[in-house]
Amino acid sequence: MRIKPTVLLILIFFTRISGQENFLLHSPQKIKQFADFLFCDKDYLRAAEEYEKLFSISKVDSFLFLSSLAYSLSRNYNSAASGFSRISDLSLKPDAKFEFYKIKFIQEDFENFLSGEKDSDMKAEEQSLKRYLKLKGIFSLMHNETLNEEVILNTFQTDEVETIQKFFGFKKNPGIKSEVAAGLLSALIPGTGKIYTENFADGLMAFLSTGIFSYLSYSNFKAGHNFRGWLFAGLGGLFYAGNIYGSIASAQIFNAKLNIDFENSLKIFLEEKKYFSPDYGLCK
């Protein structure tokens, strides 16, 4: 067989300039290897794009699932939710639906999150439904819904129950401080409102400063310095009023801090549990 050198050259040239998509490194098999590597290397955004390429080539739902999962892990929730909602493969659908509702929970789109209860695709698989119900339990805790502790606790695993019970304990007895009581206490004895809200140093300072300015006012009036007497009386009055206002604010801050601490604890618990997502066994 003899082929003219010019034909050979043309063919070689053709294969070399055929565009980067034809590189062997960009073949579907290599893209999959590379995407898996990126995913396990926690470079989720790049992994998502590689899986997306595979999906656009093959239209296989497992790649769309992986792409959406990687988007979700890189906190690109809109892309992730859009991907999960397009999955039609029945074996992947319950997990995809759970991941979809999980994203809605994270995005605080609670209307869509709660619609998961009626989703038959997710209910088709027991594990997905269980995970969803755990999130629903946390939602109820967060939003002070009428809590049926027993029912909610039943959805959690043994190692999770203790923490959830602590959250319930907080909801039943949050230990909030009354703003009215704080204000009244400080009006009676300056600084005591702050001490009531566990702001001990501020309470002591308020007591001392109000007391000292009152004494200075009295002392200056007594010495015949009326201007200074009024000046210190004014300063003392300011401290007194400021201390009442400060005590009410201190109670508000104390209560806000309690709620923030509770929400942070819940968030840390959810992050640790990966919002109850399963491992999927992708990186071993």
Partner: peptide
């Protein structure tokens, strides 16, 4: 036929025998 086989061979050899070129 010969040209077709030559074409195939070139594509295959060009892409698989020279991985360094790919890199």
């Amino acid at each position: 036929k010969k040209i077709f086989f030559a074409f195939l061979l070139i594509i295959v050899f060009n892409k698989t025998l020279f991985p360094q070129d790919e890199l």
